[in-house]
Design a protein around this nucleic acid. Structure first.
Lengths: 367, 367
DNA sequence: CAAAAAATAGACACCGGTATCTTTTTGGCG
DNA sequence: CGCCAAAAAGATACCGGTGTCTATTTTTTG
């Protein structure tokens, strides 16, 4: 190869370039182009998998490999006007469910160029919308995912549309267009759980509600009521008490139900934290579980396996929902060749996990 | 047309610019400069809080406010050669402790321009170092935080220094220079815990180890041994069993200890998950807690309060460590005016949380 | 009050990629 | 073999900020 010394128009002909690139300095696309004997643009084409002649592509790829070149995401983000980031907006960053969801998202993007940014926001704040808008404006992410209870606000979705930001809302019911939502069949699975409970002979079933501001709480309660009606059992409002999805509220709710004149033989709590609280209330009263009282929860959070007795619960596939949400959000980067975004489901099935805390109703007590 | 079509270098002079900026398009620093009647650079100075005349600053700030300008982080990142991001490298994204740590980091950066990127990596992978290097090369973050067990590898620290990336290593002992590490006094607090246990009359103390690959496990064991010696008690290797920091390993360890000929009257587990496992093993054997067996854990993870009986444990202030790590990593952005990075502590104190699972040794059994 | 010194503002190149448009190469076909 | 269309590669503007160096104030001082 006889290199033809073209007149180097480059600005740095004799002023800056002379020093042979500091070892620590970042490699750029220009270095790769020079090494491969092609232009910047050609390297860029390779990076973006644009159609091109196989021989040229191979040459460039070899150069990238040899030099150990890693493209600069900031520069790409600037040129593309899009950051290679997914933002996850959460309300309560302590929730184990939010963490599981996050893990699902991370697993979906693990092999891609995407990064995940987590942004906790305060649902109560009057500046909520403005905060989200600022964050989106700053980050210009590929998309945003909203977890409950944020996902239940239609104004957030509308804002994203106005800002032209892709988003997915996650919840316990369809909250938006199919392509923008991922949900689980909370209502139906609760109905099935209660059917199982009734099949074991229970007739007095306590229910601990979640906070009414959460769609999941309302769905689970609706499923409970439906199941009772289907089973021909009366809906006894005295057996339904309020909770806030917290362990402490579960303890109080359990106390209220167990100290009542006619306590239930089984208590369904709308999430596992509250079920753990009910379990504590039962232990405090010296009850033997599940002989004296059965308890059922929802979520399948880590506590469910670790308490005594282990909790019969509904496995809420939140990690799977996280992966699904990510794939729906950025299908062009996360789907394989044969996959089509339109084929991705929007609903995932929760399943019942039988463990120790649900037993048969005592013979004497039933009816 | 007498336009010279051979060399239309300034093609946009009269063709593109005229249109008055599409409403949806992003505002730039140029718009602000024009509005305020100053130059780009002056606006940049305001954004970067460089010293300047108060009147000019006020004028520019008013313009920013009026226009609702939000600077483009990608462009800044490109120009600065630094991304406004902190990366958190974790090995096990399911660990509740990692999640608490993450929350601490998020709270520290909540009001700043920083974002947090979470990157799970596989400690076992032979490509671990390369993976981290690639991620750092791509993201060019302000800094990186490593959690155990990643933080215990010196080669990762060396790599960061080579790449000129700031980092903080988090652990249960000083792992690096003060300015690059945050640690807790695991050994000392375990010693204190065992002193309390002994003070309650216990003489046969079981110990469940953590995985030997974790520095925290080794420190906690060292603290345990020290305390026994200080109390003049023999170190009975038969009362020390292995665990892997998992619930299941706690169940096995508990079973091994309780089924032995001379079971201990109290078991100290090196973390709460294993303590919960021991608790389960005890329940399975029909023991009444803490009458027949006391149990003590370490971490104060969410399960500790929710199991029965609630677990006496060591509160490992991991969220606080997260906030501290972030502040040490990027002090210039996260510290207030009066604060100095040199004043930030490196060690945080763990504290003992008395709950229900530690009781006095039975009269008959002691000695 | 003028000159010198210091502080502030502005012009322009630059960060490392992508987009557009132009030039060169390739390939099909009479 | 030559012509022309189509495909590939190249040159250069551009994304939206920051850094440097120069021009202009403003302040200080004799």
């Amino acid at each position: 190869m006889d290199e033809k010394r073209k007149a180097p128009k480059l600005r740095d002909t004799a002023t800056v370039v002379p020093l042979p690139r500091k070892p620590g300095a970042a490699l750029t696309i220009t270095d790769v182009a020079e090494f491969a004997g092609v232009s910047k643009k050609t390297v860029s084409r390779v990076l973006n998998r644009e159609p091109m002649k196989a021989a040229t592509r191979a040459k460039v790829e070899a150069a990238i490999e040899t030099l150990g070149f890693v493209p600069n995401v900031q520069a790409r983000a600037l040129a593309f006007r899009k950051n290679f980031v997914i933002v996850l907006f959460i309300h309560d960053s302590t929730s184990p469910m939010a963490m599981k969801f996050q893990r699902g998202v991370l697993s979906a993007i693990a092999d891609s160029e995407l990064a995940l940014a987590v942004r906790p926001v305060d649902r109560e704040s009057p500046d909520l919308l403005a905060d989200i808008e600022t964050f989106l404006g700053r980050q210009k992410p590929m998309g945003a995912i909203f977890l409950p209870p944020l996902s239940e606000r239609d104004d957030i979705g509308e804002m994203c549309q106005r800002l032209n930001v892709r988003y997915v809302r996650v919840g316990s019911a369809p909250l938006d267009m199919m392509s923008r939502s991922v949900w689980s069949n909370d209502r139906d699975v609760v109905t099935a759980v209660v059917r199982d409970i009734v099949a074991r002979g229970h007739r007095r079933i306590g229910f601990v509600r979640g906070p009414s501001g959460f769609r999941s709480a309302r769905e689970r309660e609706a499923g409970f009521r439906q199941a009772l009606q289907a089973a021909g059992l009366p809906v006894d409002e005295a057996l339904m008490v309020d909770g806030h999805y917290s362990f402490e509220s579960g303890v109080s709710a359990g106390a209220a139900l167990l100290d009542a004149p006619h306590p239930p033989t089984v208590i369904f709590a709308s999430n596992d934290s509250m079920a753990a609280g009910v379990t504590r209330a039962a232990h405090q009263r010296g009850l033997s579980l599940p002989r004296d009282l059965s308890i059922v929860g929802f979520d399948d959070n880590p506590v469910a396996q670790q308490i005594w007795p282990s909790l019969t619960t509904v496995h809420w596939p939140i990690a799977e929902m996280g992966a699904l949400a990510a794939r729906k959000l950025v299908p062009d980067m996360l789907l394989g060749a044969g996959e089509d975004a339109a084929d991705l489901p929007s609903m995932v099935e929760s399943t019942i996990i039988p463990r120790e805390s649900l037993g048969d109703a005592k013979q004497g007590k039933s009816e």
